[in-house]
């Protein structure tokens, strides 16, 4: 049995997708789905929600392919669509803020975070997903995507002050979570 394989460049796939080639769309999806789901995971509470964001994002990508003019990386363009899709999802569902009891966190012994490298990506993702949606959005946009507070205020429809205060609270919660996690690790190690 012989398998015929052909590799396509991203530009070729994009051209074929524009003509409505379903197979090319599938190849493009498979090429970027795992990376884009990683982006959506940071904005979601769990994987199910992240997959919904991913689905909406890819539908937008396919319907707006004509808008991509080849300026900059295609991945960056797609990533921006995923971020906006995630924010739109958050706005649409407008979840109640999941307020974390900071007094409970404060009661845990604070350990010197001298070994943050002990925390892997899954641990950190879990921490981010524990944040309330508003805090999570602002932290992602500012700390990871690199948006300014002005841009975040425009994207999320809030004031710059609100963006700053939400980021500050998100950081405080994460610091406590990191410290507690490090403490546990030390306890397990001891």
């Amino acid at each position: 049995m012989m398998f015929l394989e052909r590799t396509f460049t991203i530009d070729e796939l994009i051209k074929r997708c524009k003509t409505g080639d379903r197979k090319a769309c599938e190849l493009l999806y498979k090429g970027f789905a795992s990376k884009m789901l990683g982006v959506c995971m940071r904005y979601a509470t769990d994987k199910m929600e992240a997959e919904d964001m991913l689905q909406n994002g890819f539908i937008k990508v396919f319907s707006r392919l004509n808008d991509y003019r080849g300026e900059g990386l295609f991945e960056g363009w797609m990533r921006r669509i995923m971020i906006h899709s995630s924010i739109e999802y958050y706005r649409k569902h407008h979840k109640m803020l999941q307020v974390i009891d900071t007094t409970e966190l404060a009661s845990t012994p604070l350990v010197d975070a001298s070994a943050p490298a002990n925390l892997n990506a899954a641990d950190l993702m879990d921490m981010v997903q524990q944040l309330s949606p508003g805090y999570r959005m602002v932290l992602n946009l500012y700390a990871i995507e690199g948006y300014s507070h002005k841009e975040i205020a425009e994207i999320m429809g809030i004031s710059e002050g609100a963006s700053k205060s939400q980021l500050s609270r998100a950081r405080n919660i994460l610091k406590q979570l990191v410290n507690r996690s490090n403490g546990r690790k030390y306890e397990y190690a001891g």
Binding site: A33, S34, K35, G38, M41, A121, L124, M125, V128
Partner: peptide
């Protein structure tokens, strides 16, 4: 987290 990948 910037380059994390998860299979959908």
């Amino acid at each position: 987290l910037n380059n994390i990948e998860t299979e959908p």
